[in-house]
Design a protein around this nucleic acid. Structure first.
Length: 468
RNA sequence: GGCCCCUUCGUCUAGCGGUUAGGAUCCAUGGUUUUCAUCCAUGUUACAGGAGUUCGAGUCUCCUAGGGGUCACCA
């Protein structure tokens, strides 16, 4: 069975890069009817917070990424780590090192001065004497100091490291007894049964260390897939300072989960020329062998396009429900269907859509001057007055087609083109040029409101003429 | 600096030795529309450079350049 995981450290919100690796891991588990586990790496008490953990969980919930089984918290697993550290100590695969931090720093400085690689010198590796007084030791693992370590990576291929270049007896437990990252990751992944590790390629150079731990403990090494970074516009690793990397910020900006997920799945992964993927398709088609090797630059142009696509294809009831987050209450509006059918084709985000709804439902706060001047040339006033009359005579009107009919009536009567009535009417109703079909607008706001808005616009027109 | 990874249109990418180097987005133009948007059509733009291997190289090898990542008692 395929078991994958996402293992964030809760130092802040869930960001785009983390979400993408989480998505990849999730999809791969689902495709194989496996498990997708969540582990919170909260061993650094100074930097972690409960709020951050909750923020990550909330983002997962918004996006519909469900993890399997209990969430594992590293902070609750000290006893487990201690057991394995003691085991390594007992087997002579790890040892206590009494070098102080100061001594270590001094060694490092000396090595740097000699242009050597900073590397622990192994002075306590085979230490048999009496340990110095008053020094709490760290625990170091005996790492191979020569030979090759090969990471078999499903994305990058076999990556060969020379032990002497990159390894030393690295610390697996600090002087206060707490275990370090590369140790706990390996232990937890092994104990949780994770056999497919999909993570950012910034971890590629940690992998040999984790393999050392696996081997010391006799665990099976998982398959690795190191996915390339997402870069910012400057070409550097995307970080929290880059802005708009908080996943939940996309919810507030009016993006749909489907769009964000579709956008992210295509960043660094592809399936031929296909651009649109439903969640079902992603689960069916995702395969880490199709992950590309090179980093991609974060650019949301395509996200807008995808979001517009998904808005168009979301049922109106659902859209109406989502719009409540943006201050628009449409659920009981009797012309909801007509309005949303017309508007959802034109919005890139729910936020934009909400604004468009407001601009129709509420009468214009102001009239665009240029539009007024342009639209009210010639006989516009007379045309509008006639239209208002015909509208009043028309009796009950409901459908856009019925309003359209009245407009046609006026056109025929006066022998004019559609534009002659359309332009001034548009400005009268909406205060500007642009926007959805006027028949739709009128059907949504109703006849009385149409007449009110025409009257107001005519007053405004008169006022403008007086000023001029 | 050591080690590791990467390099196809501005951006996301297809390509897996033989293609007029494809798609998407963006941008531009045209059509549709009373307007704007949608939609449709058309167009501009790419194999980092250099050597090899081969009848033939974006695809394989090497070198160079550029970019990135990583080197903690952080994760």
């Amino acid at each position: 069975m395929v078991v994958t995981r996402f293992a964030p450290s809760p130092t802040g919100y869930l960001h785009i890069g983390g979400l993408r690796t989480a998505l990849f891991s999730y999809l791969w588990a689902r495709k194989n009817n496996g498990k997708f586990l969540l582990r919170i790496e909260d061993t650094d008490k100074k930097r972690n917070s409960k709020e951050a953990t909750e923020a990550i969980l909330k983002a997962f919930e918004w996006l519909g990424l469900e993890s399997d089984g209990e969430i594992v918290y590293q902070s609750e697993r000290d006893a487990i780590y201690k057991k394995y550290i003691d085991q390594l100590l007992a087997e002579g695969k790890a040892y206590k090192c009494y070098m102080t931090k100061e001594e270590l720093d001094a060694l490092r400085e000396e090595q740097m001065a000699n242009k050597q690689r900073a590397k622990y010198d192994g002075r306590y590796r085979d230490f048999k004497g009496t340990p110095p007084e008053g020094v709490e030791p760290v625990i170091r693992i005996k790492a191979p100091l020569s030979g090759e370590i090969v990471v078999h990576d499903g994305v990058k291929g076999d990556v060969v490291f020379q032990a002497e270049d990159i390894l030393d007896d690295f610390i697996i437990a600090r002087s206060d007894g707490s275990p370090t990252y590369n140790f706990v990751v390996a232990v937890d992944d092994a104990l949780m049964g994770i056999n497919e590790v999909i993570r950012g390629d910034d971890h590629l150079s940690n992998t040999p260390k984790q393999i050392v731990v696996y081997e010391a403990l006799g665990f099976d090494i998982p398959n690795y897939y190191h996915v390339p970074m997402i870069h910012n516009q400057q070409g550097k690793k995307l970080s929290k300072r880059d802005g708009a990397t908080d996943v939940m910020a996309y919810k507030e900006m009016g993006y749909l989960p489907e769009a964000l997920l579709n956008f992210l799945v295509r960043l660094g992964w592809s399936h031929g020329d296909q651009e649109i993927f439903s969640m079902e398709e992603m689960k069916e088609l995702f395969d880490p062998k199709d992950i590309n090797k090179s980093a991609s630059i974060y650019n949301t142009e395509k996200l807008d396009w995808l979001n517009a696509h998904y808005i168009k294809n979301t049922p109106n009831d659902k859209i109406a429900e989502l719009l409540t987050d943006f201050g628009v209450m449409l659920s009981s509006h009797d012309k909801k269907e007509i309005l949303l059918d017309a508007l959802k084709e034109r919005a890139k985000t729910l936020k934009e859509l909400a604004n468009m709804v407001q601009e129709i439902i509420n009468e214009p706060k102001e009239y665009d001057e240029k539009a007024m001047k342009k639209a009210f040339k010639g006989d516009a006033v007379k045309i509008l007055e006639l239209f208002a009359n015909r509208l009043e005579e028309a009796g009950e009107l409901h459908l856009p087609s019925e309003y359209h009919h009245v407009m046609e009536q006026v056109i025929d009567e006066l022998g004019i083109g559609f534009g002659k009535i359309g332009q001034p009417l548009r400005v009268a109703l909406l205060g500007k040029m642009g926007g959805p079909g006027l028949d739709v607008v009128m059907a949504v706001i109703g006849k009385d409101e149409v007449l009110v808005r025409i009257a107001k616009a005519l007053v405004k027109k008169t006022a403008m003429d007086l000023e001029a």
